[in-house]
Design a protein around this nucleic acid. Structure first.
Lengths: 341, 341
DNA sequence: ATTAGCACTCTAGCTTTTAGAGTGCTAATA
DNA sequence: TATTAGCACTCTAAAAGCTAGAGTGCTAAT
């Protein structure tokens, strides 16, 4: 069933008004604020039709209309297909650009804060990291009498460090020599390929270094274990300001999912597969506990490879237009910054 | 005014019961559950006296008694003076000890999680770091054609890294040479001492290295800037389970303070000065927005120097006994682990 | 095809009612 | 004298009842 131009206008008007007000929208409001050329009675008739088609529902007979997820979907599709113009205040960019030289970690944290602050929703960023990541460089050096430090740099600019306790006396030269050896052996390999067998073999080959060697290799194994995606969550308190989350129980359910970092990382990675920008409205969400929310995700890539995902969690009554603009801008920004460094 | 033995018993019983139930405690309950040798009427009389002394209040005339902060204070002092025996399930320790070899960062994060999980309150940990910290080692090495990595290790086992873009061609040797030079010049110095003047002088001396040198020094300056205390917050959703926080507005106020990392770091550092373990009940809290909560802090030190602060935020009706036991155990654990590594 | 007019519906918020929990006081008891 | 049983009294939280007003759907007029 195709909507008439007028129905379209009314549909979008109701959605927009509800996004602003969070109150059921009446025919009088639409007539006054959006379509003064039409009387409330006319709009009432159209609204009844639209309700029948599943775009609205009434909390009770004598209330105004509330958009259904189908209506939001229609609205979002209109935005995505370019019918609604996107705008973006680029002063936000300027603020960010000053800091563009930062490490990826603090940059992502800052972007998360910026997103949650400007949208008043929750932002969740996942920096994808997998065992497939290739080791770019390993460096080992002495810290003091008792300790050495092992630095492991992997693809995507991630730096890991691991303190190693020296049980036996080793001079600086020996340690660096060992570092060079390990680096040579391992750089270019993926973390995942450092399996039991490989490590055992390495230990055998390095028998001469004994204790240190074992510790060093153990350190590597640990980096491998811990090397999964990183999650940055910001603005959780924003959900407390929303009228649809007056009920503490509802809030708890959502926040508890969001706090499960590993789960969220996996879900977002899954979700954002395929399209670059994805809008998930209410029940469309595969995460049951988040069916009261909408989720907008956008992945940012480098050289064709997805590096991470930005996500915004808000009510289904989310300001999709603003959020989508911001997401597009942010991924573009991230891709430019990371690409250029 | 000194309390009689019987009044003491009743006071502590009311506090204990209220901590469990969060409901006003009636005379019948105390008689039945705690002091069966006394009739409700007797207890009623004593309760009236205790109320007059400011230990209880009644939400309304026909309700049971609720402990005031003065009562909690009495209870906590009884615990701290050793009158109430502390217990601690040390299976928690075993879980931790397996991971004792971790980096300080992930160790603190894990401890935060453990605390919030076992107490069902919010945990906040501040790792104190100041500009007074001394640089232990600086290392510079080449990553690939275009980049070098600078590693700065400071007191307390903190490792920072900074990517440096090489504008001009430099061979590996030169870079390492520069690293050795910077290390020699700066290790042993405090971060705070790297002021404008010092840096300018350094740049001058290193003029021969030009571009790289400037970038390297800038990296240092940035580490100095960012080097303030680190805050680990865990279990914020726990507050949503508490009956005293049914009101979303109350929750928001507390969570918003807790999210202000810099502020919290400063406050906790301030608060925990002096005593090692501190219990702050309700209005005693200097942070206005947290006067509805209680806060227990414990600092952990190494060689007489305070390294950080563990904090637990909960309702004034907090299970102080459990929390205090846990805090004592955790700081002891941290001090042993960090001292022995 | 649109719209003015009107009866109708439903809720949010207010008042009223009521059961029950817990008190304080008095008088009896040990 | 210290304790306790008994009882009238108080107060609230939850249920029930009431009402204004917002918004509808339908009918008849334009």
């Amino acid at each position: 069933m195709v909507l008439t131009e007028r129905q379209k206008k009314i549909l979008l008007a109701v959605v927009k008004d509800y996004i602003e007000s969070a109150e059921p929208v009446g025919s009088r409001t639409i007539s006054k604020k959006y379509l003064p050329s039409l009387s409330p009675a006319t709009i009432r008739n159209e609204m009844a039709d639209l309700e029948e088609m599943g775009y609205f529902y009434q909390p009770h007979t004598s209330a105004g209309r509330v958009p259904t997820n189908k209506a939001y979907r229609y609205y979002v599709n209109a935005i995505l297909s370019g019918e609604e113009k996107l705008t973006f205040d680029d002063y936000l960019f300027r603020e960010l650009l000053n800091e563009a030289k930062e490490e990826i970690e603090s940059l992502l944290r800052r972007i998360g804060k910026l997103i949650s602050r400007t949208t008043d929703y929750i932002s969740i960023i996942v920096a994808l990291r997998s065992r497939e990541s290739v080791i770019k460089k390993i460096e080992l050096f002495r810290l003091d009498l008792m300790h050495a430090l092992m630095i492991i740099v992997t693809e995507g600019g991630w730096v890991h460090h691991k303190l190693i306790t020296l049980k036996e006396d080793m001079d600086e030269e020996e340690i660096e020599e060992l570092g060079r050896y390990i680096n040579e052996k391992l750089s270019g390999k993926s973390l995942g390929s450092l399996d039991e067998g490989f490590i055992r073999e390495l230990i055998k080959k390095l028998e001469e270094y004994k204790g240190v060697c074992v510790e060093a290799i153990q350190a590597l194994a640990e980096v491998r274990e811990r090397f999964n995606s990183k999650v940055y969550l910001e603005g959780v308190t924003n959900i407390l300001k929303l009228p649809e989350f007056k009920d503490v129980e509802k809030i708890r359910i959502v926040l508890e999912v969001l706090e499960e970092e590993d789960f969220m990382a996996k879900m977002l990675a899954e979700l954002s597969r395929g399209e670059n920008l994805k809008v998930i409205i209410g029940e469309e969400n595969p995460i049951d506990r988040m069916k009261e929310c909408s989720l907008v995700t956008a992945s940012y890539s480098l050289g064709g490879k997805i590096m991470g995902i930005l996500g915004i969690v808000g009510p289904t009554r989310m300001d999709y237009k603003r959020v989508i603009s911001l997401m597009k801008a942010m991924t573009k920004f991230l891709e430019s910054v990371e690409g250029g460094s």
